[in-house]
Amino acid sequence: MHDANANRAAQTFAPLTASAVLVNPVGLHARPSVKLTQLAKRFTAKIEIALVADGPWTDAKSPVKVMRVKAPQGATLHFRVAGPDSEAALAAMLALVHDGFGEA
């Protein structure tokens, strides 16, 4: 359901990209992955993350896929967001990373 909407959104809106460095001590482990997924799910936009700017891209709304990225502290997390609420989504995702997922 989410995926279908997100794919449609991605087709009509040019993707926004930005990156942020993971500052929290554990990196993108279980708990931060859950928070990132929960936040991503609040938006209509298709939201993807990657460890390098040209991908491979991972669906930020999938908790299992996000945990498999296993991004360590100090890694740069790239975001690619496309959809009607992409600006708000990107700002919120970057804020979460800058905040250290509320852990730092």
Partner: peptide, 24 residues
């Protein structure tokens, strides 16, 4: 349980919750 609950907390339907847990 953690993955299923994460999926559920985003408002996903039952089939999506099960599918996400089974991705493991």
């Amino acid at each position: 349980a953690v993955i299923a609950a994460t999926e559920s907390s985003g408002g996903s339907p039952l089939a999506a919750v099960k599918r996400s847990a089974e991705e493991f």
